[in-house]
Design a binder for these strands. Structure first.
Lengths: 249, 249
DNA sequence: AATTATTTTGCAAATATTTGCAAAATAATT
DNA sequence: AATTATTTTGCAAATATTTGCAAAATAATT
C-alpha cells in the first residue's frame, strides 16, 4: 500500500468521523503506529488536519469534501437536521452559514421545496443543486481555505440588502454564561451580521458543543430564537437553558 | 511493446484504479522496473499523473468525465493547461471563469506560486485550496446549478473594483467570422465584463470548439490577446487565425 | 505520586530511486 | 543494403527513503 493511499484513507476517515486514533488507524491500515504517526505528521504539515495526543481531529474542510454523497451517516447530525426541517416552509429566504449541520439539513430538504437559500458556503450550493426548485445565492468575498467558506468585508457587504426569514447558524460552543462563541474572529463578525438581517436565528449544536467556551463571542444565548440539539429535554446538560425565551428542540 | 503502448496502459490502469505501483506495472507490462519508472517520469513531466515513492497516483481530474469516456485522461486538456502555465507569474491577479480547462490549469499550478485568483467557480476555489500560497476571491451572486458557477448582476458588480492581469476564458466556440460565442446569455455578459477588467485575455479552446458557432457572442477574435489550443501551428483549422495580432500557442 | 499510554529518537533492515554504462533496438543517413 | 546515429532498455552500484522496532522521554490518567 502506497503512503499516499494510507493518507487518503486517513483523510476520508477523518472526514466522516471527525476524529481518529492512531491505534485505530494502525489496525485499519495494517501498518505500525510509527508509520501512521508519521503520516499524520505529514498531513498536519500540509495543513489538512490537526494532530492531537493519541490521534488527529479534522478541519471542517474535510467534512465538506466527504459529506457530499458517500460516507458514514452520523446519526447525531441527522437527528438535528430532522428537527430543523420542521421550521422550513415554502417561499422563505433561508440563510445558512458554514456549519456542518447545514449539510445534513440541505440533504434532507424535500425535493419539491421552493425556498431561496443564501450561503457563504460553496459546498452547500453544490449539495443544494440537487433540489430543482431551490434558488441559491452565493455570498462572495475572500475564500477561507480551512473552513471552505467566504469571509470578510465583501461577504458582509453582500448581505446588506438581504432580509432573511431563517438563519441556521453553526457554532463551536454554547453556554448560558458566555453565550455563543467560535474560534475565528472574522467569522464571528459575519455571524453577527447574519443574525442582524434574519427574522429568526436557529442554532444547531452538537452535544459536544454545549457548555463549552471559545474565544470569539457571537451573541448571548437569549439572542437566539431556537436551539436544536440531539439531547432529550430531561438531560442535565440542558438544565440551565430552559425558560430563557429560547425554543429548544 | 512500444513505449507509447506501455504508457497508455499505465494511464488506463491509473484511470480505473487511481493508483499503481511500479512493481505491478513491471509485471503487467513485462519490462524492467527501470523502464516503467522512466515511463512514469515521462508521464509526470507531461502532467498526466503524479509520481510517488513506489508508484503513481492519478490527478483528481482524471475522474472527470470527458468526451473520450469516463476515467480516461483527456490529454488535450493537459496539453492546453501546460501551455497556459507559462503565462502565469508570481504576484499577478488572475481571473478564471467556469471553463473546464481552468480546472486543469489550477491543478497544474506550482505549489509555491503566489498569486490571487478571482473566480465565479466555487469548485475551482476548492481545487486551489491545495495551494497554500494562492489567495482566492470568490465572486458572489445567483448560483447557476447547471454550470455550477455564480452569474448575474451581482457577480458583475463584484468585479467592479478589480483590475486583473490575466483572464483565462473558456468558450464554446471560436471562429474568425463570428468571433467567440457561448450558449448562455447571462454568462456571455459576464465574460465581457471580465475581459473589460483584465489586462490580457487568454482563451483556452479545445480542438472541437474551433470554427464552431454559438448563439451569444462574447467578442471578436481580434479582441483576444492569446489563444491556446492543442493543435500544431501547421494545422489547417488554424489557417485563418494567424497574423491578427493574437498570440497563438 | 504512581501507573499507563503516547511520543520522540536513533537505528537497522527492507525497499525504492538515481546514476552511469553497455547492449540491443530503432531510426536516419549514405 | 550497409553504415551511422539515436533511442531504448536492463543492469549494477551508490544513494535515498520507508518502515518497524526498542529504549528513553514525555504526557495523560488514575
Amino acid at each position: 500500500m502506497l503512503k499516499e493511499e494510507r493518507q487518503q484513507v486517513i483523510l476520508e476517515k477523518l472526514g466522516t468521523d471527525k476524529k481518529v486514533t492512531l491505534v485505530d488507524l494502525g489496525q485499519i491500515l495494517n501498518v505500525s503506529y510509527d508509520s501512521v504517526r508519521r503520516d499524520v505528521i505529514e498531513l498536519e504539515d500540509r495543513g489538512l488536519l490537526k494532530k492531537v495526543h493519541g490521534g488527529a481531529i479534522a478541519h471542517s474542510y474535510l467534512a465538506m469534501k466527504s459529506s457530499k454523497g458517500l460516507g458514514v451517516v452520523n446519526t447525531e447530525f441527522v437527528t438535528i437536521a430532522k428537527k430543523a426541517l420542521k421550521l422550513v416552509e415554502n417561499n422563505k429566504i433561508i440563510l445558512m452559514d458554514g456549519g456542518t449541520t447545514n449539510f445534513y439539513i440541505a440533504e434532507q430538504l424535500p425535493k419539491n421545496l421552493e425556498v431561496t437559500v443564501v450561503t457563504n458556503n460553496p459546498h452547500l450550493a453544490t449539495v443544494l443543486s440537487e433540489h430543482p426548485k431551490i434558488e441559491i445565492i452565493l455570498l462572495g468575498g475572500s475564500f477561507y481555505k480551512r473552513y471552505q467558506i467566504t469571509l470578510g468585508s465583501k461577504t458582509i457587504q453582500d448581505l446588506e440588502n438581504i432580509q432573511a426569514d431563517l438563519y441556521f447558524m453553526g457554532t463551536n460552543s454554547i453556554s448560558i454564561e458566555s453565550g455563543l462563541a467560535i474560534r475565528h474572529y472574522e467569522e464571528s463578525i459575519l455571524k453577527q451580521k447574519m443574525m442582524s438581517i434574519s427574522r429568526k436565528t436557529i442554532v444547531c449544536a452538537l452535544e459536544e458543543k454545549i457548555n463549552r467556551e471559545e474565544n470569539y463571542k457571537v451573541c448571548n444565548f437569549t439572542d437566539l430564537d431556537c436551539l436544536i440539539t440531539s439531547l432529550n429535554s430531561s438531560d442535565d446538560q440542558l438544565s440551565g437553558f430552559w425558560n430563557k425565551g429560547v425554543d429548544i428542540l
